[in-house]
Amino acid sequence: MAELTGTDDIGGAGLSGTDTRGAGASRAWDGVRAYFLIAGMWIRSTMAYRASFALMTFTNFAATALDFVAILLMFSRVHTLGGWSLQQVAFLYGVSSTTFGLADMVIGSMERLGRRVRDGTLDTLLVRPVPVLAQMAADQFALRRLGRTSQGALVLTYAVLHLDIAWTPAKVLLMPVMLLSGCAIFCAVFIAGAAFQFAAQDAAEVQNAFTYGGTTLLQYPPTVFATELLRGVTFVLPLAFVNWVPASYVLGLPYPLGLPEWAAFTPPLVAAASVALAGLAWRAGLRSYRSTGS
């Protein structure tokens, strides 16, 4: 197994001591390029069965739409939930679903890592001259996951059109920043989850509590949750920066945990820090991987 474990530098975009900065950057670029090549291959492969693709995309759309139907059903019985109106909750829902849907499409295949470790197919990825992270992320790339994103985007559009938001340049600018940072934060959760699976292969389902559980949590207003839970998803796993904090600014609502107003503009920093930490965890996980057998 010495050969295999020796190749783990491939997964780290050239961070090993002997690499120069230039080599590192070019490896990162190689990774991105490989990602697009592999993803493109999977898209061509799914497009061989167009009807099946259309059906799956629609199912994906409908599946996530039911989440919103549940919220509509709740609001058929009440006017506000935790002090937030239907349109305000729809705004949260839209941002949560759009960002999670994008992250799930871009990198969601990482959740299959545990299975690959178990059946030994991860070793195949280790011997290819392409970063393992890129290979895992693009593996079985599913364009049908656009179903969730487009459903989220529709709900977000509905919310923005029906809410009486006092738009300022800062708020307009914050919208794309919020969506991109939110997507990056969810990507970090996926990477960290995959890194965790190196240690706990069978326990892959724990990850669902943070990915699917995370996006579900963010569909509801922060005011309904207990303070300890809010602290956890603000300071430990910073999901609150996906939508709760920036949305509170855009909608002019009180911040969760009484955070200062400038906190609404920190999501890019939070996202960068999360991705960096998740990347370190991934490197540690990949380095600890010893394959199976003798």
Binding site: M74, L81, G82, A200, Q201, D202, A203, A204, E205, V206, N208, A209, F210, G213, T216, L217, Y220, P221, T223, V224, F225, A226, L229
Partner: peptide, 23 residues
């Protein structure tokens, strides 16, 4: 291990629902 992981995930989803239902 898979069972323990499942219990963890079910509990997490249960917590989210409990708070939502409480509201």
């Amino acid at each position: 291990a898979a069972t323990v992981a499942g219990v963890f995930t079910n509990t997490a989803f249960g917590l989210i629902l409990v708070y939502t239902y409480t509201a």
